[in-house]
């Protein structure tokens, strides 16, 4: 298309003049607006029909007691489902687990992701090939990652314990019960999630690191600052907006994790990995209580929306990055 582009570019200088002379700027603008609305309409209608409408149904259902069989009676029960949700131990502990899981995933990904991003930066242009290799888990299905790690961590024939044992770090190959120890399982099931998406944090932080003005770091170095000090007082503060965006995007995904956990432990052992999505899914399908599940889901939905709206207001607003 170079021909079109150059013609268009050639005419570009004439455009503002022509627009300025036209008597009906208002009319043109109104035409623009109508055209813009028309272009957005299909996407808006789609999202209204397949996201907003289902969500409305979901929230509406939370006020009813519903029999799981299609076409049978439903009774309006007001806020009973919410009372039931908040007084159930299952719901409160699943909320805590979701929070712990999310914080653990995000913290690990941040530390590892930043370390690798700094490593790539220190190695300069030669690291390009390795950056590519580092990216491949991002493309793998979470289900595959979950199964893969279950296979690696499984108690009797997992390769991780076997290698740790051969390296002399473990006394026996089944010493660490990664997925069957209720106190450990919530952290073990997070490993595939961390493995899958640390690269995302690395890529984003690496791109951010390239934008840090070199003079600032040179100046600090001349003043005698050492690497840890430069990292904590210059690099991280300058990267703050980028870090915030990356962590929020990942945090929201981690808080919704479902397939990775379902595949590894199905919420066990002793419910120790039952996070909110798993609990809601199970309340709906296995326990046959769609009304209660919708109430739990609505609370979860509102919490997620509140977090994301606060995040958008705090971080995405232009100029909010500096203090």
């Amino acid at each position: 298309m170079p021909a079109t582009s150059s013609t268009a570019a050639g005419a570009a200088s004439a455009a503002p003049a022509a627009a300025g002379k036209a008597p009906g700027i208002g009319r043109r603008e109104r035409g623009d607006r109508r055209f813009a609305l028309l272009l957005m309409l299909p996407a808006a209608l789609f999202l209204a029909a397949f996201v907003l409408w289902p969500l409305a149904r979901f929230v509406y259902d939370s006020f009813f007691e519903i029999s799981p069989f299609a076409g049978s009676a439903r009774t309006f029960v007001g806020f009973d489902n919410y009372v039931a949700a908040f007084t159930s131990e299952a719901f409160t502990s699943a909320s805590v687990r979701t929070l712990v899981y999310t914080l653990f995933v995000v913290a690990m990904e941040f530390v590892l992701g930043l370390a690798v991003a700094l490593l790539f930066t220190a190695l300069g242009r030669r690291s390009t090939v390795f950056r590519t290799l580092f990216m491949y888990p991002l493309m793998i299905a979470p289900v595959v990652a979950g199964l893969l790690w279950r296979f690696l961590l499984i108690d009797n024939f997992g390769i991780v314990n076997e290698l740790l044992f051969r390296a002399g770090l473990l006394a026996s190959p089944d010493q660490i019960q990664w997925l069957s120890n209720p106190n450990l399982a919530l952290f073990s099931v997070a490993i595939p999630d961390i493995w899958l998406t640390t690269s995302f944090i690395t890529l984003v932080l690496f791109a951010g690191l390239q934008n840090i003005p070199g003079e600032v770091i040179e100046a600090a170095r001349i003043d005698g600052a050492r690497y840890p000090r430069i990292l904590l007082s210059i690099i991280i503060p300058l990267l703050r907006p980028v870090i915030a965006v990356a962590l929020i995007v990942r945090g929201i995904d981690a808080a919704r994790a479902f397939d990775v956990i379902l595949i590894q432990t199905d919420g066990g052992p002793q419910g120790s990995t039952t996070t909110l999505t798993l609990l809601i899914y199970r309340t709906m399908t296995r326990f046959g209580e769609p009304g209660l599940a919708s109430a739990m889901g609505t609370v979860y939905l509102l919490a997620m929306l509140a977090v994301s709206i606060v995040a958008i207001l705090l971080i995405w607003r232009p100029g909010a990055g500096e203090r």
Partner: peptide, 12 residues
């Protein structure tokens, strides 16, 4: 929309 829990859309 990107931040909505998948289950809250999927179930309905």
């Amino acid at each position: 929309t990107r931040m909505v829990p998948t289950i809250a859309v999927g179930a309905p």
